[in-house]
Design a protein around this nucleic acid. Structure first.
Length: 183
DNA sequence: TCGATGGCTTGTA
DNA sequence: CTACAAGCCATCG
């Protein structure tokens, strides 16, 4: 099935992050958004990968995720991610990978809409773009929080809209109420 | 295989 | 401003 997953966690500002690393090639296969407890963070990974060890061997990477969360640049990039597609891969389909690769192109400090992302991919499946983003295995590293609704409302987010808003504010996006302000 | 369900969009009232 | 309805298309059970 799948190889053993090495799980590491870190605490940052009272929140807990977890990362799962493939023992096979050292690539990241899962990242969690900050959780209230360490167990909750770990569980998000062990729910998917049954063959795992929690050894904090890669705590440096977990810390880097917290760095990104704090709004700073990190040297953990998509080069560190497992980008394969398939039933047992982080990306379940080509479509999902395409969507997430496209969102990687959105620069810090700007946003894109679900629809414009779909357009760039030559499809009208903006709704499916949303579901693909909802399943992003690498939040923060793949900036799914930079995708908002086309009417400029913030839209939904795995970690809650409030967190999505905070992340955008940290990146310098101008927001009024629940809307991104036009330039 | 088929229907239900989304981190959506546009139009109408 | 809010409230619906219809349309969209990949995914999941």
């Amino acid at each position: 099935m799948t190889e053993k997953v090495l799980i590491s966690t870190c605490k940052y500002e009272g929140k807990y992050f977890a990362v799962g690393i493939s023992s096979k090639n050292g690539k990241i296969i899962r990242i969690t958004l900050p959780k209230k407890s360490e167990e909750e963070a770990i569980e998000e990974i062990t729910n998917i990968y049954q063959d795992y060890v929690i050894n904090n061997e890669n705590q440096n990477i977990a810390r880097e995720i917290a760095v990104i969360y704090s709004g700073k640049q990190s040297d953990v990039t998509i080069d560190h991610l497992e980008l394969s597609t398939g039933k047992y891969s982080p990306f379940k389909s080509e479509f999902m990978r395409d969507v997430l690769m496209e969102t990687c192109k959105i620069p810090c400090g700007s946003v894109e809409s679900y629809k414009s992302l779909a357009k760039k991919m030559n499809t009208h499946a903006y709704r499916a773009v949303g579901t693909a983003l909802a399943k992003n295995p690498y939040p923060l590293v793949i900036p799914c929080h930079r995708v908002v609704r086309s009417d400029h409302l913030i839209g939904k987010f795995g970690g809650g809209s409030e967190m999505k808003k905070e992340l955008l504010v940290k990146e310098g996006v101008k927001i009024r109420g629940n809307k991104v302000v036009e330039k």
